[in-house]
Computed example of a mutant assay.
Amino acid sequence: MNKLTQFVIFLTQGINNCKRSNEMLSIEEFSEDLRSQSLIGCTHQGDAMEPTLRTGDKLIVDPSDVIPRAGVFVIQDQFGLHVQRLEPVLTNKTTFKLICDNEKYTTQEVGLEDFQVVGRVVSAFRKM
Rank of each mutant, 00 (worst) to 15 (best):
V110Q: 07
G119C: 10
V89I: 14
V118T: 06
K93G: 00
T94V: 02
Q108K: 14
E113L: 08
C100Y: 07
Q116V: 14
D114S: 14
K93I: 09
Q108T: 05
N92T: 05
K104M: 11
F96N: 03
K97Q: 14
F96P: 01
K97C: 09
L112K: 12
V117D: 04
T107H: 08
L112H: 01
Q84W: 09
N92D: 15
L86Q: 08
F115A: 02
F96V: 03
Q116E: 14
G111N: 14
L90I: 07
N92M: 01
T94W: 03
R85Y: 10
Q108L: 15
K97Y: 10
K104S: 12
F115V: 01
D101G: 05
V83M: 02
D114E: 15
I99L: 11
N102L: 02
L90S: 11
D114K: 12
E113W: 09
F115P: 00
N92Q: 12
V83R: 00
L112Y: 05
V83S: 03
L112Q: 10
P88F: 03
N102M: 04
F115N: 01
I99A: 02
T91A: 13
C100F: 06
V110W: 08
T91V: 09
K93W: 06
R85K: 15
C100R: 12
V83L: 05
K104V: 12
L86W: 09
R85G: 03
N102Y: 02
E109P: 00
V117K: 04
N92L: 02
L112G: 10
P88G: 03
L98Y: 05
L86T: 05
L98M: 10
Q116C: 10
L112W: 01
L86V: 09
V89L: 14
L90E: 12
F115K: 03
T95D: 10
K104C: 06
V89T: 04
F115L: 07
V118D: 01
K104T: 12
Q108C: 04
T95P: 00
G111T: 11
C100T: 12
V83H: 01
Y105C: 03
L90K: 12
